[in-house]
Simulated scan of single mutants.
Amino acid sequence: MSFKKLHPLLKESLENAGFETSNAFQKKVLPTLKGGSDAYVIAPKGSGKTTALIIAIIHKLKATAFEDSPRVIITVKDKEDAIALKEEFERFTMNTDLRVYALYDEYDIDKQKTEVYYGQDIVIATPARLSKLYFLNGIHLGEVQLFALEDADYLGLHNGYNHILRLSESLTKCQFVIIADEMNSRIKNYQNAFMSNSHLIKQK
């Protein structure tokens, strides 16, 4: 798909970042993500799957901040990945008022609770810290429209699989997206929980 059908502010950000059109794999991914369907997005590194997720999220949120509760949650492996993904988002949100927050273990949880409370649109989090903050009533998930697992191959670490499973039970009317380099038994098991109606988009 071309970028002409995207939100004008997002289209402007893409042009400023040197993106003229989506690549072949993104053309497969973006209609499903924009349409609101649950999806497994499986492709090697460098395929553009993370950029497709970012584009779909900003478009879904209409490139505009809204109230205080997060509308998108993305889980990642660790602090480094959280910060890197936040910086990648900021390439495409700098001309919007969207608020992007990185939530990770190596930081004072009371400060995080305060910083999330004052309003965030997109929260990028490690599963353990997200789970802990949620069960401390430090983050409200009632307005989440999209929950994504980025680079989900990590889910065997630090009880991440079970954290995600428990958190998914608190989400209603939410789009779920799992992004990984390859399908594995652990992420496939989510089909028995919250991915039963998901599409599989795989790079051939």
Rank of each mutant, 00 (worst) to 15 (best):
P127S: 05
T93W: 10
A84E: 15
K188R: 10
N137C: 13
T96W: 08
K132T: 04
A180S: 15
T93Q: 07
V41R: 01
Q191S: 04
H59Y: 07
T64V: 03
D81S: 14
F66N: 00
Y154N: 07
H59A: 08
N184D: 14
R99C: 07
I42F: 05
F92K: 05
I122R: 02
R186C: 09
S37F: 08
A39F: 00
T126M: 06
G160I: 12
I139F: 06
K28E: 12
Y40R: 07
K49F: 08
D105S: 07
T50S: 02
N23S: 08
R91I: 12
T51A: 10
M183E: 14
I201S: 01
K11P: 04
E88M: 12
T75Y: 06
K5G: 00
E67W: 11
S196P: 02
R186G: 08
H199D: 12
N189V: 04
A63V: 02
K202R: 15
V177G: 09
S170Q: 15
S37I: 02
R129W: 07
L61H: 02
Y107H: 01
H140P: 01
K60V: 00
A82Y: 06
K111Q: 02
H199V: 13
T75I: 10
I109G: 01
H158V: 15
S37M: 08
K27T: 12
K45W: 00
L165Y: 15
T114L: 03
Y190I: 03
Q112V: 02
T51E: 04
N197Q: 13
V123H: 03
L141V: 11
F25R: 03
A17P: 05
K49R: 01
S69Y: 14
S170Y: 13
G35S: 06
Y117Q: 11
V177A: 10
G48S: 02
Y134P: 04
F135D: 14
L167P: 03
F19P: 05
E15C: 06
T114E: 05
M94T: 04
V123P: 01
S69G: 03
R166G: 12
L133V: 10
K4N: 07
A82E: 01
E182S: 13
P31D: 11
A193K: 14
L155M: 15
L6H: 01
A43K: 05
N197Y: 13
L155C: 09
L61D: 03
L33R: 01
L98G: 08
H7P: 06
I122V: 15
K62I: 02
T21I: 09
L200Q: 11
T64I: 09
S196H: 10
T51H: 00
Y117A: 01
Y190W: 12
T32Y: 09
L157Y: 15
A125E: 03
I201E: 10
E87M: 13
N184W: 07
G142E: 13
Y154Q: 10
N16I: 02
Q145E: 15
T96G: 00
